[in-house]
């Protein structure tokens, strides 16, 4: 089966005073239609830049230096601006972290929704208006007929994010990329929004990519997970595989370092030592080698490739597979 989206050997670099920041560093990933995909990583891991690269939105001075992004038979990286605009919003919907900065503050919700519908689907104004109200209703905005006339500042953070969801779905895209969609909202609102996104993407027959730093969200909402570290995917598997039999030392470290809501207190948390790497001065070999308690000589010299250590479970570690079993311990 051809994947819906296939990223091959993607690299995105940002020249800085300190040197070239390799935000995404040779990343490959395939996403199949109908799956919900989680991309997990900490700040600076390259997860957001990957999303921006797919959408052709890497900010200056960043540049895609290599790779391809195949989506429905075309390489998105070779499209010109005009062609790309027909993909963005129409075939790929986006939901960003901060709805206040992604919505235009001086335009009404109606104007922003109808603009997309008219531009992409060629709807007439009255059709688009009716559809906008319908969409707001679908995302659970009370009294949509009057709220559609409001400006974004009149809505709460949760309501604004519902508008973003409506906008992302408005043209019936095949893929929706949600980058930290609930990081700016409270936990009870987060549950409402993620439930809504998951239900609606299924209903609209779209594929959902959730980018998050929150392992709990990933465990609850996605089918397959990619763990990113320093611009690369270091582990990739089903959600059960990643949580029950993690293979990469970074994934194992993450799971051991976070306290759990449903567990009695452990004596002490086991943090990952050290700091995330400086992307302009990555260590030789594996980027995780200076924080890794399993590191061996080879890790200091050679970059480990992402290999399939057990069926459909990939890990980029010279010492993989780690012992199977809960959290690899």
């Amino acid at each position: 089966m051809t994947p819906l989206l296939e990223i091959r050997d993607l690299s995105v670099h940002f020249p800085t005073e300190e040197g070239v920041v390799k935000a995404v560093n040779g990343l490959s990933h395939a996403i199949h239609a109908g799956e919900t995909i989680g991309i997990v990583g900490e700040s600076g891991s390259g997860k957001s830049v990957t999303a921006l690269a797919i959408l052709g939105l890497v900010p200056y001075p960043g540049r895609v230096v290599s790779g391809s992004v195949l989506f429905q038979g075309a390489d998105l990286l070779t499209l010109n601006d005009r062609e790309m605009r027909r993909v963005r919003g129409r075939r790929i919907g986006m939901i960003f972290q901060e709805p206040m900065t992604s919505l235009n503050p001086v335009l009404t919700i109606e104007r922003q929704l109808t603009e997309t519908l008219q531009a992409h689907l060629g709807m007439r104004r009255d059709q688009a208006r009716a559809r906008a109200v319908d969409l707001l209703d679908r995302v659970g905005i009370p009294d949509p007929k009057s709220r559609v006339k409001d400006h974004p500042y009149r809505l709460s953070g949760g309501m604004r994010q519902r508008v973003m969801i409506a906008m992302a779905l408005s043209c019936g895209p095949d893929l929706i990329i949600a980058d930290e969609p609930t990081t700016a909202v409270d936990v009870t609102i987060q549950a409402q929004l993620l439930d809504l996104m998951k239900d609606l993407t299924r209903e609209f027959n779209a594929t959902l990519i959730i980018i998050s730093h929150d392992m709990g969200i990933v465990a609850r909402y996605v089918d397959r997970v990619a763990i990113m570290y320093a611009g690369k995917i270091v582990e990739r598997a089903s959600v059960t595989g990643v949580f029950k039999t993690p293979q990469h030392p970074y994934t194992i470290g993450l799971q051991q370092s976070i306290p759990r809501l449903d567990e009695e207190r452990k004596e002490k948390l086991q943090p990952i030592p050290g700091q995330p790497p400086n992307l302009a001065r990555l260590p030789h070999g594996c980027a995780f080698n200076d924080r890794c308690r399993y590191a061996v000589e080879r890790c200091l010299n050679e970059v480990p490739p992402l290999i399939e250590v057990v069926p459909d479970h990939w890990s980029a570690c010279w010492e993989a597979p780690m012992q199977a079993g809960p959290a690899g311990r």
Binding site: S156, G158, M159, D186, V187, T188, I189, Q190, A191, Q192, D195, D214, M215, G216, I217, V218, A219, R220, Y221, V239, T240, F243, K244, Q255, I258, R260, L261, D262
Partner: peptide, 27 residues
């Protein structure tokens, strides 16, 4: 109760069997 139920737990097995209780509305 609602607050605790809203927090996702980093364990897909626990999440699959967990009782869901999503609070409606906003503060």
């Amino acid at each position: 109760q609602a607050l605790l139920a809203a927090v996702p737990i980093p364990d897909p097995e626990v999440e699959a069997t967990r009782e869901r209780f999503v609070l409606a509305g906003e503060t």
